[in-house]
Design a protein around this nucleic acid. Structure first.
Lengths: 214, 214
DNA sequence: CGTTCAATCTTGACAGTGTCAAAATGCCTG
DNA sequence: CAGGCATTTTGACACTGTCAAGATTGAACG
């Protein structure tokens, strides 16, 4: 029962490392966890259900994550990695002349990511981990890195004179990210529900940000 | 059940009505619930603990709230009532000449409320109710009212020409409230932790909002 | 004044949760 | 092939929300 099922779980590709009984249980758990929260939110994720889904006993996950909190942190961390990649890709492919336009698509991509990965986004920036739980050291590092990227964006625009010179770039980065985040949250949390308005509101927001430069 | 519940809800000050066994259990539960979440967040609130605190059996609360969700909605509703009062008071006492200044204190008061009533704020605008749970009809009504007050503020400023005339007041109201809310969230959720910066960031935000008018 | 009634509260139960302790399994190294 | 140790399981405990059924009792009515 245990053995054969374990093998089924993994394709065991060509040179797939099967470190132990299950082989890659950690990643399998992560994938299943993301699936679980994607359909029903974090409140739909229980260690037991997760273990069941993967075909392993209730407490098996505890050898790969100290806690439920650590599991959630791992999901969030993955989320940051994906987001960073998407965002840098967006920047790369936007071979625009106009810096403001590039920034706009950058921002709209941020919104889109939050929308398409609601539950992950909630974990990345939400109370579950940052207030109710305890962010892992490595999660903190990754998130700091993510904010640094944003700040560099702002500094670039700042140097181009697109913001008020009297403000500190740091403050602008904080304030404008908060704005962006707030919009994500209102949609993500179901307070704003008309998703067609999303980009429109964002553009109004962007205009206020950038017009404030002149 | 429906009728008498209305009586419980009211304080009926001088002539303290003790409609039944406990008398005023509903409000007592609400108060204890707010206390519980204030010290430990919503994850520290369980119906059983709540009932224990009040000195009543586990299932007694279910005669005043259909569910835990309804209890949370009631807390949020109270929160809206308090916030509305605080905000209108702030507007009244701010007998300023400069409209922008009045608006600033208004906004700073909003932030202060969110900060001093974190857990209630989370319930008022958070996923727990609006996405994971189901907002009560009356909660929806109250929250709509609250947003209307904000929109009226924006419209007033708009008519005074403090925003870009090309934007719709509705969009501005949405975008700027999202900004404000985002800032609250980042502090409330523990993502931003340096609370001394709060008002400073808010003022940078405000300048961007208002400067965008010229 | 006593009976009835319905709102209120209690007790018991069930399925679910996170997580700890101890036992079992089985791969790798010697 | 034997030992060790990472991995997994089983059992248990204290919680959770909430349902069903019974007990209590304030008030309305005869």
């Amino acid at each position: 029962m245990t053995l054969s099922r374990l093998n089924d779980t993994l394709p065991s590709m060509t040179t797939r490392k099967k470190p132990y009984h299950h082989g890659d249980l950690r990643q399998t758990l992560l994938n299943a966890a993301v699936e679980l929260i994607s359909s029903g939110g974090v409140e739909n994720l229980s260690i037991r259900k997760l273990a069941d889904q993967v075909g392993v006993s209730r407490t098996a996950p505890y050898h790969h994550f100290q806690d439920k909190n650590e599991l959630l942190c791992a999901i969030a961390e993955q989320g940051f990695a994906r987001q960073d990649q998407i965002m840098t890709d967006a920047k790369r492919y936007a071979t625009g002349d106009n810096l403001a336009e590039i920034f706009e698509t950058y921002v709209l991509n941020y919104l889109r990511f939050a929308d398409q990965n609601r539950e992950t986004y909630d974990l990345m920036y939400g109370r579950e981990i940052w207030r109710a739980g305890k962010p892992t050291e490595s999660l903190q590092a990754v998130s700091r890195h993510s904010f640094r990227i944003w700040r560099q964006w702002i500094e670039t625009l700042f140097e181009q004179g697109m913001f008020d010179r009297n403000e500190s770039p740091r403050r602008i980065a904080q304030a404008h990210w908060a704005s962006l985040h707030g919009l994500c949250r209102l949609f993500n949390d179901g307070v704003y529900i008309n998703h067609e308005e999303r980009d429109d509101i964002a553009r109004t927001m962007l205009r206020a940000m950038l017009r404030a430069g002149g």
